[in-house]
Amino acid sequence: MNGNAVLDINDLKVSFKVRRAGRKYQVRAVDGVSLSLAEGEVLGIVGESGCGKTTVGRSIVGLVRPDSGSISFKGRDVTGAGLRDMRLNIRMVFQDPYASLNPRRAIGDSVAEAGDINGFFTSRAGRSAAIAAALTAVGLDPSFAARYPYELSGGQRQRAGIARTILPSPSIVIADEPVSALDVSVQAQVLNLMMDLREQLGLSMLFISHDLGVIGRISNRVAVMYMGRIVEQAATRTVLDDPRHPYTRSLVAAIPKPDPSRRILGAIETGEPPSLFKRPSGCAYAPRCPLASDRCLVDVPELRSVDDRALACHNV
């Protein structure tokens, strides 16, 4: 697609087999997502729990195998692949800093793991120096290399988790809700750290979050997902200042504002997303949508280009 895109995702579909009450179901978590990530760009993916945003990230690093569609890194197809080059180039920061570090491994070993697995280090001294540099880069003292996760706070653990993704330095970091498990004060520090690192290392970043406020601070572009599909995609400012899709409007309305009079009234939806087991035949958002018309119940809106954005809605 894009000339300077480092990552191209085309019509990605992922489904899971689920057994419930003795019956087998096929649950489609991602239903035809296309994204492209430009060099040095931060693309935010926002959506509520179960919308498939994490599954998109996990398919990129090869943790889930897509049913169809393609993922290419710098023009090379890496769909579900185990290419060494890709493994070191695309790395993931995980949501829960308490679960993402092995309690029985020293921080230094966890930080150096990608290098160790892929035979990156040539000498013991070089390895220690690289660990120290990575820890320093995330604002931890190099002495943390010898400590164990239980000795660290949540924020320190997440810093260690980030250090793990930058040794050796990758091209792309997939950040899956990297701050949602942290205190608000620590969230800001970790976000700032990620922005600094992005600049220093020239990273491209896919930033997955359910919090549009957090996404707004860090990303250049935002893709809004609902039930496995992208419903709106545009530059961050465009999405925050002028949301058009009714679902995006409700997300923007839900961001706490210093000035309550600026709230978009009446935009916050009621009810819950429909079950993934019983996907509505038309637009997945129709049952909750204030603008839903008869057409929305039967006809799935395609993502189309409207003005300065991509939008999937019949009525705006």
Binding site: R87, A99, N118
Partner: peptide
């Protein structure tokens, strides 16, 4: 566990997962 997934996402094979993550946690 997330740390096992993290390890897999970095290209770890079964032997690595057993030796570095599973066995130490079974001790």
């Amino acid at each position: 566990e997330t740390y096992v997934e993290a390890s897999r996402s970095m290209g770890a094979g079964t032997a690595w997962l057993i030796g570095k993550h599973i066995l130490p946690n079974l001790v």
